[in-house]
């Protein structure tokens, strides 16, 4: 099967993005849930931007800022010897922004739901801020982490416009499933397009089904 490459690349991209996002989004979501800073609305707006902006707009800006002549692109080039644009690393960076709200929002809402109560109790029992977070807040917000992981993974998997703008269509490097499907349709190879689309459809359904079934079990256990 010739299409295994794009499929694996998409999975690798989605998994990498998801893991990095969990590390970035957790402190960000905790800060957003806790802060009374006047900066909060601005930060929230920036995080939510990818939801409303057309992916082509995001992709365009990434092209502008990540290319080797721009500041960020040059730093990366000098450090690694390869460019961010039209590379897997560039796709990961773009996906981090693109999928950020899908990781931040489930976490933020989970943190806001439990509030500071248990966290404070843990602090007065001798737990440092990090310890209290890891031993009390995180386990109590399991479903938030699950939601963030699944949504950021699934959203990255389905990414198209940004990939096209930043990554192009390099087999094994930036040719993800959605690009491959687009290619197949362009070249009127409907059979191959069907095959990949069906795989994505089933996978997406299975993931969401799993999440909702878990949520139902959790709700039943809580009541």
């Amino acid at each position: 099967m010739t299409d295994l490459g794009p499929l694996l690349l998409s999975l690798r991209l989605a998994a990498t993005t998801m893991l990095i996002l969990l590390v970035i989004a957790t402190p960000l979501a905790w800060w957003l849930a806790e802060t009374r800073s006047r900066l909060k609305p601005a930060v929230q707006a920036i995080v939510a931007l990818p939801i409303v902006l057309p992916p082509t707009v995001l992709g365009f800006y990434f092209l502008v800022f990540l290319n080797p002549n721009a500041f960020a692109g040059r730093l990366w080039f000098e450090a690694t010897g390869s460019t961010l644009t039209f590379s897997f690393a560039g796709l990961v960076v773009a996906s981090l922004f693109y999928s950020l709200p899908f990781a931040v929002q489930p976490l933020q809402s989970a943190f806001e739901t439990i509030g500071r109560k248990e966290y404070e109790a843990a602090r007065t029992l001798g737990a440092s801020p990090l310890d209290a977070f890891m031993s009390v807040v995180a386990p109590l917000c399991r479903h938030g982490f699950l939601g963030a992981a699944v949504l950021s993974f699934a959203h990255t998997l389905g990414e198209f416009g940004v990939v096209l703008m930043v990554g192009g269509n390099i087999p094994g490097e930036t040719r993800t499933v959605s690009i491959a499907i687009y290619d197949h349709v362009e070249s009127l190879d409907y059979a191959a397009a069907h095959q990949l689309s069906a795989i994505l459809l089933v996978a997406a359904f299975a993931i969401l089904l799993g999440v909702f079934a878990l949520n139902r079990r959790r709700a039943a256990a809580a009541s």
Partner: peptide
């Protein structure tokens, strides 16, 4: 900081760790 005080707190609600 709170965790270095060895001052324990019983709140109005129990605030037990449900997990």
């Amino acid at each position: 900081p709170a965790h270095r005080r060895a001052v324990a707190f019983v709140f109005q609600e129990p605030r037990l760790f449900n997990h």
